[in-house]
Design a protein around this nucleic acid. Structure first.
Lengths: 192, 192
DNA sequence: CTCAGTTGTCTAGCGGTGCTAGGCTCGGGT
DNA sequence: ACCCGAGCCTAGCACCGCTAGACAACTGAG
């Protein structure tokens, strides 16, 4: 039976290699450069091997997105747990979110711009995505204000962060004033 | 000279036809379905004709985006001019913005999600785009609050709207509570 | 009225894409 | 020792954006 186990381990390792390589290639040259041929060449296998792990390119993007969601959730929790008081936590959260988006543009795209075939905001949403939202909710729920549903508030705050992240990166907003926009957003949206 | 003028008119008409057809096809079946072949077939010309009007597909997307920006600016101005008082204007603005994004998803994508080769937030930004931002600024500048730069406030508010629009349409936010999110956003961000 | 030249359009094709059918090789179980 | 199936690759499909080059039609000069 050990042979089979070894094969499964190797298979799992190769799957991680595919996802890591796709992510790396996307960060280096953008998602347009992540073609099945190039990806296959980089992992030193032929194209069809990719399809024995994933249904298609979309699923590979989805796998990168899930990896990114887990990382982002961890980053957000690390930042907020190091801050004192609700207000400071929210500021740290916002900065960390935008920082993550700026430092990992390809991963951020996989999560929110591209079609990775992932289900959001429904029952069978993958765990990392739910957990990412939960990480936001933990800090933002504190400052929603009385009578405001924490989930709804989190959605609105998140949408604002997402808008800032995407518009800035797409050149729709000048990057110079980014920090002042964050301050304004936190100032206005949070109570306390 | 009249012959030349007629040809120019026909040429301009055909260019409008290309843009209108691209937009229609994108709204019907998504931008993925807007291929140069299909587009050429719909306008009943061969592919190369497209390239005598536009440098490439990107420019066609850009043309749809400009058309959309002009329409959106007009819609925003119509909505805000019909509302009484700064606060009501902002609410009307937000609703109209999100409504436009929902009703014209392909056009909204052309404006803000896809690469239409357009320059934003710089000197040689095309007029319709500047005007769209101006339409936002007219109503939002009123409620920025003392000491807050109207342009900066407009950028933040716009980012929030953009985030709501894109996340909702991508299935990242449940559509049911959309109206309550707008109310919350306007409540918190606007002073007065 | 003829004819050269320009203008406009088309056919055909290049190099790329995501994806898959079918054959080959090689290792494991009997 | 042999057979068989898993695993991988080569080759190819249909499509993509884009373009070179041939051809037709119209313009304007003689």
């Amino acid at each position: 039976m050990s042979v089979q186990e070894r094969k499964e381990r190797e298979r799992a390792a190769r799957e991680r290699l595919i996802v890591a390589t796709a992510r790396e290639l996307a960060e280096q040259q953008g998602w347009d450069a992540v073609t099945t041929r190039r990806l296959a060449e980089r992992i030193e296998y032929s194209q069809p091997v990719l399809y024995s792990h994933f249904r298609g390119k979309r699923e590979i993007i989805g796998a990168v997105a899930l990896e990114g969601a887990a990382e982002m959730a961890a980053a957000l929790r690390a930042a907020t747990s190091a801050a004192n008081g609700p207000r400071a936590r929210v500021t740290a959260l916002a900065r960390t979110y935008l920082d993550f988006a700026e430092r990992n543009p390809a991963v951020y795209d996989a999560m929110f711009q591209l079609d990775g075939g992932l289900a959001f905001a429904v029952d069978d949403t993958p765990e990392p995505l739910k957990d990412g939202f939960a990480a936001l909710l933990e800090s933002l729920g504190e400052v929603a204000g009385d009578g405001v549903h924490p989930g709804l508030f989190t959605e609105v705050f998140w949408a604002a962060l997402h808008g800032l992240a995407t518009l800035t990166r797409a050149g729709r907003l000048p990057p110079a004033e980014a920090e002042r926009r964050v301050e304004l957003l936190v100032d206005r949206l949070t109570l306390v």
